[in-house]
């Protein structure tokens, strides 16, 4: 199966395939290409959805609040001074003896901003057989970006660590899909991060709001700290979607620790990958219970904060397949249509 790409673009490394005519197709393993043609085929049938209409931007494929001169009829309005005479519906004038201006719907483009958390905490996995959160997030960001570019949306990919890293875009058009994916593949973890500050800074410096999709493990800061930036985004007209990437081991806790003789919990020294801080503990059943309770509390707080700020919140586990389950969930949550 080959991906049809415009010539002379070389087959990118993120696509599986042959490096030579007779080369066998390698088995899919961890660290393999981010996408295959089956996934791209699924993505091409999708379109990124917005929860509210956009009043700005150039012409595109998304409905807009702006009324203009397109052939698509939208509504009538009473004539007022300054309206274009050419848009007066004379048939209606004849029937109703009133001047009404015919309004048509203007379709606009989306500004899609993919904020990708590239902190060290994302570069972790609880099971060597599964992907890291960062790899999973890149794959997801790539999918969303591909959908946007395929629908001629304007896409900005902004990875961030402690600061915003060099971004990709704004890019538009299907020809930018491959550079986007190639850019994703070159990304590497960037150290620590401060998610609320990054969100706040990102929203302040952009005049044209759009759809911002944050892909992160949300381990930076408290859930309440996230409420301010999300509120700021909404106030500036942005539509925000938070995609929370979690590893299943994080939810259980036990796989993160050691097991001693007899299956009993062994003392472990946990090292936080971002800060290097250490903590010694023995993962006894009470400790694990408290850990899971803390996790559930945290997740509930995140859910509550996002709900309060009108932000779509979607939690994805790295053992869920992007091709099927995740795309279905994105569709159900109205992120894609």
């Amino acid at each position: 199966m080959r991906l049809s790409l415009p010539s002379p673009i070389r087959r990118p490394a993120f696509l599986p395939g042959r490096t030579g005519a007779d080369a066998p197709v390698p088995a899919r393993t961890v660290g393999d290409a981010l996408f295959d043609e089956e996934l791209l085929g699924r993505l091409r049938r999708l379109v990124l959805m917005s929860q509210k209409t956009i009043a700005q931007g150039l012409a595109g494929e998304h409905r807009s609040r702006r009324r203009g001169s397109s052939p698509e009829f939208a509504d009538f309005k009473s004539y007022s001074q300054g309206d274009d005479f050419r848009r007066i519906d004379w048939n209606t004038y004849a029937r109703l003896d009133g001047l009404f201006v015919r309004l048509s719907e203007v379709t606009t483009e989306f500004n899609v901003h993919l904020l990708l958390d590239a902190s060290n905490s994302m570069d972790w996995r609880g099971d060597d057989r599964g992907p890291t959160k960062f790899a999973y997030a890149r794959r997801l960001a790539g999918a969303l970006g591909y959908v946007s570019l395929w629908r001629f949306d304007r896409v900005v990919l902004a990875p961030f660590g402690a600061e915003l890293a060099p971004r990709f875009g704004p890019a538009q058009g299907r020809a930018q899909a491959v550079p986007l994916l190639r850019h994703l593949e070159t990304l590497a973890p960037l150290g620590q991060t401060d998610l609320p500050a990054i969100l706040d800074a990102y929203a302040r410096v952009r005049r044209r709001p759009g759809l911002v999709i944050l892909v992160s493990d949300l381990l930076s800061g408290e859930p309440a700290d996230l409420g301010g930036p999300l509120r700021e985004l909404r106030a500036r007209g942005w539509q925000a979607t938070v995609v929370h990437v979690v590893d299943p081991a994080e939810l259980l806790g036990a796989p993160m620790t050691g097991v001693g003789p007899g299956g009993r919990p062994a003392p472990s020294e946990l090292i936080e990958v971002e800060s290097g801080e250490k903590l010694r503990l023995t993962p006894t059943d009470p400790v694990l219970s408290r850990y899971r309770a803390a996790i559930e509390t945290w997740l509930a707080e995140l859910d509550a904060v996002c709900a309060a700020e009108g932000t779509t919140y979607l939690r994805l586990q790295t053992d869920w397949p992007v091709e099927t389950l995740v795309l279905q969930m994105l569709h159900e949550r109205g992120v894609v249509g």
Binding site: G253, A266, E269, L270, I271, E274, V287, Y291
Partner: peptide, 17 residues
């Protein structure tokens, strides 16, 4: 103890009494 990297310690600290 065995040394193990974890993404964050915040929940473990909460679990440690």
């Amino acid at each position: 103890p065995q040394t193990r990297p974890v993404p964050t310690l915040r929940f473990w600290r909460a679990a440690m009494l």
